[in-house]
């Protein structure tokens, strides 16, 4: 990745132009052609840096209910349980974390009723208790990351 790729990633994470020739517009801000912009994006997509380019919806606004769940899964059962969870479209993130409760996943469903049903279903299928931690208050969702190496940064949150 060169500096133009990094700038491109930084731009394309947020203000994607909703217009007839969006890549031409993005290219113009970077001083490159539409064709080069598309080629760079295709490469970043192939390399796996870009997971998806499109709309990120607000699940709450669409009426969906979501939660964060924790489970305690024995080491040897992890692949099996992960495979069960993998089948659910509403389970979008699943991570192993360094805690007694080691499996952490997010679940999004069309309604509260659906959420409870899915949790019960998952407990039954996996055989493990699920601790659901629905957000009581949302302070922030950002999810455009700083691109490392784009500028000199000090390690500071402030």
């Amino acid at each position: 990745m060169d500096i133009i790729d990094k700038k491109l990633l930084s731009i394309i994470q947020k203000d994607f132009p909703i217009c007839s020739h969006p890549f031409k517009e993005i290219g113009a801000t970077l001083g490159i052609t539409e064709e080069e912009t598309l080629n760079r994006l295709k490469k970043l997509k192939e390399q796996g840096v870009i997971r998806r380019l499109g709309a990120i919806m607000d699940s709450r606004k669409l009426g969906y209910k979501s939660t964060l769940c924790a489970m305690e899964v024995p080491e040897e059962k992890i692949p099996e349980v992960a495979a069960i969870l993998d089948k659910y479209i509403g389970i979008t993130h699943n991570y192993l974390r360094n805690h007694k409760y080691n499996m952490w996943f997010t679940l999004i469903t069309p309604s509260e009723e659906h959420l409870q049903k899915t949790l019960a279903d998952l407990e039954q299928k996996t055989g493990y208790k699920i601790y659901s931690l629905p957000a009581k208050k949302l302070f922030k969702i950002k999810v455009n990351f700083h691109v490392p190496g784009l500028e000199e940064e000090k390690i500071s949150a402030l």
Binding site: Q13, F16, I18, V49, I50, A55, K61, V147
Partner: peptide, 28 residues
Amino acid sequence: LLQRIKFLQEKGYIRRFGAALRHREMGL
């Protein structure tokens, strides 16, 4: 289509339009 997408953005149905990155691939 462009008008409708802008409407969905203005009303907050679309939280963000753009790239979802694999932060691990970016070195994070």
